[in-house]
C-alpha cells in the first residue's frame, strides 16, 4: 500500500514546495533558459547589442575543428577517468570487505579524498607534479623521464585524468562496498563448496551480482568527468598545453568568459545540457528496470 498524505487546502503544500521550486527555478530553469536564448543570438563587436542568429552558433561549433577536438578530448578523458576511478574503487572495496579488525578506520581513511573539493585536489596534484617544484616531478626526472606537463600534451592529459579519478575512487569504493555487503554470504559459500577458487568466485558470482552498482557508478562517473572536473583542469593545466586538456565544460567557460563569445559559449552549454539530460534519462530508465535479486 502506498501511503498518501492528504492536505486540506492548497496553501500548505504550496508553501512546502516553494523552497525547492525556488532553488530549481533560480539556479536551473532561469540560467538554462538564458543559455538557450543566448545560444540563438550573436553580439556585435563591442558587446553592446545582440541580434537573433538562429542556429548559426551551433553551425559554427560543429564546423570548428577546435570544438570537435574538445569533444574527442572529453571522450578520452571521461572514459579514462571512469575506468581509473572504478577499478581501484572495486579492488579496495573487495579488500575492505575482508578486513575484520580496524575495518572502520580503514573505510574512513579511504573516504577522505571524497571530502576534498575538486579545485583543492587539482592544486594538490599540481604541486606534486609541478615541473619546477613538484616532489614527484623531481622523482620522475631522477628516473630519467623528461617530465614537463606544461609542454607535453600526453603528460598533461595523464595528470588531469589521475587527479580527477583519484578523487572519485572514494565514492566508487563506498558504493561497491555497500554492493558487496548486500550479497548474501551464503552465495559465496555455496560457490566455494561448488569448487570455485576465490578468483572464479569473484568473476562468476560476485561481479555479476554487482552489475547494477557498476552500471550506476559508470554513469555517475561519466557525469562527474564531464561536468565536475572544471576545478581540476583549471588548477592543473588551464586546458593546455595548447588545447590538449580542454574538455567541453572548460571550453564553455573559456570561450564565454575569457573569449567573450557569449553566443558560442551558450550554444556549447546547451549541447552539454542535452548530454547530461540524456545520461540522466538512461540512468532513470535503468533504475526503473533494476533487477531485484531474491
Amino acid at each position: 500500500m502506498e501511503r498518501r498524505v492528504v492536505f486540506a487546502g492548497w496553501l500548505c503544500p504550496a508553501v512546502l514546495l516553494v523552497p525547492q521550486m525556488a532553488v530549481t527555478i533560480v539556479f536551473f530553469f532561469w540560467p538554462a533558459a538564458q543559455a538557450f536564448n543566448e545560444s540563438l543570438r550573436r553580439g556585435d563587436a563591442f558587446g553592446l547589442t545582440t541580434h537573433f542568429a538562429g542556429v548559426a552558433n551551433f553551425a559554427a561549433l560543429f564546423a570548428s575543428p577546435n570544438y570537435l577536438a574538445s569533444f574527442w578530448i572529453t571522450a578520452v578523458f571521461s572514459a579514462s577517468v571512469a575506468v581509473l576511478a572504478l577499478a581501484p574503487g572495486l579492488l579496495l572495496a573487495v579488500m575492505a570487505d575482508r578486513v575484520v579488525r580496524g575495518a572502520a578506520l580503514y573505510k574512513t581513511v579511504l573516504l577522505i579524498p571524497y571530502a576534498i573539493a575538486p579545485a583543492i585536489a587539482g592544486v594538490l596534484w599540481m604541486f606534486l607534479f609541478n615541473p619546477s617544484i613538484g616532489v614527484l616531478a623531481a622523482l620522475l626526472r631522477w628516473l630519467g623521464i623528461d617530465w614537463n606537463y606544461f609542454l607535453d600534451a600526453p603528460q598533461a592529459i595523464m595528470l588531469v585524468i589521475l587527479a580527477a579519478a583519484w578523487k572519485q575512487v572514494s565514492y566508487n569504493f563506498l558504493f561497491f562496498l555497500a554492493g558487496l555487503q548486500a550479497i548474501p554470504p551464503s552465495l559465496v559459500e555455496a560457490s566455494a563448496i561448488d569448487g570455485a577458487s576465490p578468483r572464479r568466485r569473484f568473476w562468476t558470482i560476485v561481479f555479476p551480482l554487482l552489475t547494477p552498482t557498476t552500471f550506476f557508478l559508470l554513469v555517475v562517473n561519466i557525469v562527474y568527468a564531464f561536468f565536475d572536473t572544471f576545478g581540476v583542469i583549471h588548477n592543473v593545466t588551464q586546458g593546455g598545453p595548447g588545447q590538449s586538456t580542454e574538455i567541453l565544460v572548460y571550453k564553455v567557460w573559456y570561450d564565454g568568459i575569457v573569449g567573450l563569445d557569449l553566443g558560442g559559449s551558450s550554444a556549447q552549454s546547451v549541447i552539454l545540457m542535452a548530454i547530461v539530460i540524456a545520461l540522466t534519462a538512461i540512468q532513470f530508465r535503468f533504475i526503473e528496470r533494476r533487477v531485484h535479486y531474491a
Binding site: 548474501p184 551464503s186 552465495l187 559459500e189 555455496a190 558470482i205 551480482l209
Partner: peptide, 20 residues
C-alpha cells in the same frame, strides 16, 4: 581441507541459488 575438496554438497536455508 578446503570445502571444495571435501566432496560434500550443502543445501542452505535460503537456498543460496545464484540469482543471475
Amino acid at each position: 581441507v578446503e570445502p571444495k575438496d571435501r566432496d560434500i554438497a550443502m543445501v542452505f536455508q535460503n537456498y543460496a541459488l545464484y540469482p543471475h
